[in-house]
């Protein structure tokens, strides 16, 4: 198996926050949802991967290349989307094309304009006159038009309506038709990740709590609801996290370690996140 991203024991210290031994791998050909509450360390991790922040220790490799030493080679092969478009707002899509065809060796002008037409993004309007949805569509088109092998997305769908989000998710799925392509997708909107992600990596207070196959999370875990007394009947090895609820307790359990006599609900990624952040270990 090859990996698009390999992060091992990444550390980055700030005054009031630090990334602590962050490790995860993104297999080639897959989409990883990178989730966590505000300030958990998602953007810091992404910035370290992109060399926008200098790591204190640890190793980061993209396509098996060192993220720092092979910086320029890597940047030809990645597309990056932040939560806003970071071009001066007087530039138009047409002018951005001229800039980027001088930037990337592999810039595909035709594909760029085809995507803009498909997404109905005005070509001659300056960025400042575009809606937020249009800006993000332009930003994603820019990231795709040099045929990268890896997309690194930092909250690309935040603040967008469901229609635009759906169009954008379709673009990502279209991108994933090539099995050599991969996506690291940081988002608060866990429903988007449930639609497209293969793996979920959850970061909390600068530490990775889990990095797991999405299907394993959604189908091998279950939520049991009942009273504290009833909860004693559950095998203790099956319990992962417990939360108090209005009617007793809710327990996140390993489905295969619990008898079928117990009725279990299927969790969402949001439920799992809440169990890990608000719940307690038993």
């Amino acid at each position: 198996m090859t990996f698009a991203i390999e992060v091992f024991n990444l550390r980055k210290n700030f005054n009031q926050f630090h990334l602590n031994d962050v490790s995860f791998t993104l297999p080639t050909g897959t989409i990883m949802g990178f989730v966590g509450e505000n300030g958990a360390g998602k953007t810091t991790t992404i910035k370290c991967i992109l060399n926008l922040l200098k790591k204190d220790s640890g190793t980061i490799q993209l396509f098996g290349l060192d993220a720092k030493d092979d910086n320029l080679t890597i940047k030809e092969r990645i597309g990056v989307v932040f939560d806003d478009i970071h071009f001066p707002d007087m530039l138009s899509a047409q002018q951005i094309n001229k800039f980027l065809q001088e930037t990337y060796q592999n810039w595909d002008r035709q594909y760029y304009f085809d995507l803009l037409t498909q997404l109905k993004v005005p070509i001659h309007k300056p960025i400042k006159e575009l809606s937020r949805g249009m800006k993000m569509k332009l930003s994603i088109t820019i990231a795709l038009a040099h045929h990268p092998q890896l997309l690194i997305l930092d909250e690309p769908t935040s603040g967008l309506d469901p229609i635009v989000r759906d169009e954008i998710l379709d673009l990502f799925l279209q991108f994933m038709q090539d099995e050599n392509n991969s996506i690291l997708f940081s988002s608060h909107i866990t429903s988007d990740l449930e639609k497209i992600a293969d793996y979920i990596t959850f970061i909390h207070e600068g530490e990775i709590l889990f990095s797991e196959n999405k299907d394993v999370l959604l189908y091998e875990l279950g939520i049991w609801k009942g009273s504290k007394e009833q909860a004693l009947d559950l095998p203790s090895d099956a319990k992962i996290r417990t939360r108090a609820s209005a009617f007793g307790v809710e327990i996140l359990v390993k489905r295969n370690e619990v008898s079928s006599a117990f009725q279990l609900d299927q969790p969402t990624i949001e439920d799992i996140m809440l169990f890990f952040v608000k719940g307690v270990l038993i």
């Binding site: 992109l50 940047k75 990056v80 806003d84 001066p88 930037t103």
Partner: peptide, 18 residues
């Protein structure tokens, strides 16, 4: 000023430029 307002440097450093 334009670069700073748009956060250009953050983006420019993800592009293949030294």
């Amino acid at each position: 000023a334009f670069d700073e307002m748009s956060g250009w440097d953050k983006y420019a450093n993800t592009l293949p430029f030294r």
